[in-house]
Design a protein around this nucleic acid. Structure first.
Lengths: 332, 332
DNA sequence: ATTTGCAATCGTAACGTTACGATTGCATCG
DNA sequence: CGATGCAATCGTAACGTTACGATTGCAAAT
């Protein structure tokens, strides 16, 4: 493998000059730069990542910490476009992206701490923020560049990209009301999950405006998988006063609910009106009338990387935040 | 950040001894080892990744090259469990996993070459093999440890994990015939894609056994997205002699086809029998009778990492290959 | 008393890069 | 003509780690 030393020897230059020439240092004569670059190309020189990292402290690696909801790998599908968006944007910016999957058994704070201490990454992307998320404080304290997908309820400025879950849930609930629904079921993940909390808040706002009291039994927690969603919705449908509307947490929640409906011979769009969030565009292709809030997760991924990159380059720069409105698409 | 030097200074030992003690070197007195480890723990020592990598040439990083089928991030859903399986297994083995997404515009060989030259990874996971895939020869030549998800038609031994697509497609076709189908449509990706080639071969075998001539118009290529699948199947259904059976390429192909069926008011399981491959377990939850070949992609991811790890540790060891049978699950 | 053998530890160099502070050669100025 | 300034380049040290070949101290053997 070619290195600076070899190129230097070949051209009777110093390693320093070669190093500088390759980054167009103003101290080097243009003709020398050209000679060096030609030689570098000829011998197929590529800078050694680790030599550089050791010297500069920069690794050109970003790390995304992604939680798996369940132990057996059945994760929210939005992660796929998110990952693709992040990896592509990272690559374009000259970074490589490392995925750190965590299981429900992992302590989220410890996962972050490990990344911090090893100093093997230039920046961190954290997701699934919880109320008062301790990772935010930790990362700010340690001055590790990071960006969050999602907000939390802390009174600190930090960079994030988030979807306006409150607004989306509000709108979703309103749509269902427009269809005549008054008993509206809502899927959430866990109460600590800040996105779920915001969704609950938006749902509550819409219900309050309509003067409908909230029935706690219609609010489902732990809707991580198709199985849990199906079982939950099946129970609801079996009640004496079953829901006529449903706001799903995500694609998996939707599929589970449809399964429960199908088993009872009920039709989505007539017996029960359904609205869901969707990032794979899957909901649109189901043979069922479903209202869809589509969120461009690949775009979120790109934005996350962009903000993180700025953070790394200029740690004292303005704290960028992005709040995306979901786009509502009525069923055809 | 704590380093060997600091620990050495604190204990009045040499850096060498500290380094050895931390890896339980037999040259170091047990009591010294204990002292060193205690100190390391106390100051929160973690080895610097880049110092080590520079010295040893090992990076403790694996890279998975994953192709995006389309420019706009709508990828085969099997990638999600695959990624999760890989990242978890990599983490357990002490590696971090880097995802290198490629777009249809990227040259696959060049993508691999870049990884090779930068020497920033200990091993490569390549996927979506094509006929006579040049990457296999390249990686063997350059002695870069790698493992493939999928086989190719080269007469060289190399490590891989693959799904028996020939068998799955054969079985799928047979199932459809058992339902009485004779006009059976088949979804493929691209002709070069080796998995598609195997599926075509299995389909052909079943058709030949049943004495049914193959109608090329029933074989759909480019079934990467729900859109393309829907459009294709819609055209087929409009024919004078439409298919009564369909073997889908994957979840997205299935959803697209269901969409086309739904638009025409046709029912899966009666008007058209459907069989699909599934790794997200999504197909099982659709309100439709669908035969499912379920493939445990998280398991595939784990196996890939396992084999790659062995390859890195012992490059001259036996070439491990794994061929997974798909598990057929009839619709309930 | 000197040598030998061994256990425990050490010092140095090296991996490839970059930052910093020299050093050189040459033209220009007073 | 000697001093000054500048452009171009250089040498060295350092990042944190590990490999290799010393070196030390001490007990046992000659």
């Amino acid at each position: 493998m070619a290195n600076l030393k070899q190129i230097a020897a070949e051209l009777s230059l110093s390693v320093t000059t070669v190093s500088r020439a390759l980054k167009d240092g103003p101290e080097v004569q243009p003709s020398t730069i050209a000679r060096v670059k030609e030689a570098a190309k000829r011998v197929g020189y590529l800078p050694n990542h680790h030599g550089r990292a050791l010297k500069t402290g920069r690794t050109q690696t970003l790390t995304a910490v992604l939680p798996m909801e369940t132990r057996d790998h059945l994760s929210d599908l939005l992660k796929l476009p998110l990952i693709e968006g992040m990896t592509l944007a990272a690559r374009q910016a000259g970074y490589s992206l490392s995925i750190y999957s965590t299981t429900p058994d992992d302590d989220p704070v410890e996962s972050v701490q490990r990344q911090l201490q090893a100093r093997s990454t230039d920046g961190l992307i954290i997701t699934r923020l919880v109320s008062g998320d301790p990772r935010v404080k930790l990362l700010l304290d340690k001055r590790m560049p990071f960006v969050a997908f999602g907000r939390t309820d802390l009174d600190i400025a930090y960079p994030y990209v988030d979807v306006d879950n409150e607004q989306i849930a509000y709108e979703a609930t309103r749509r269902l009301m427009d269809k005549g629904c008054r008993r509206i079921a809502l899927q959430l993940l866990v109460p600590e999950d800040q996105a779920s909390a915001m969704r609950l808040s938006g749902y509550g706002r819409a219900m309050a405006e309509a003067g409908i009291p909230i029935d706690q039994s219609l609010i489902g927690h732990g809707m991580f998988t198709m199985e849990s969603s199906a079982a939950w919705f099946d129970r609801l449908l079996a009640c004496s006063d079953p829901p006529t509307g449903l706001a799903c947490a995500n694609e998996l929640g939707l599929l589970g609910a449809l399964h429960a409906l199908g088993k009872r011979g009920l039709a989505p769009g007539s017996d029960v009106h359904i609205v869901t969030r969707d990032s794979t565009r899957l909901a649109r292709f189901l043979p069922a009338k479903i209202g869809v809030h589509s969120v461009d997760m690949a775009g979120v991924g790109r934005k996350l990387v962009e903000i993180l990159e700025n953070r790394i380059i200029n740690p004292l720069g303005p704290v960028e935040t992005i709040l995306l409105k979901g786009e509502f698409e009525p069923a055809e």
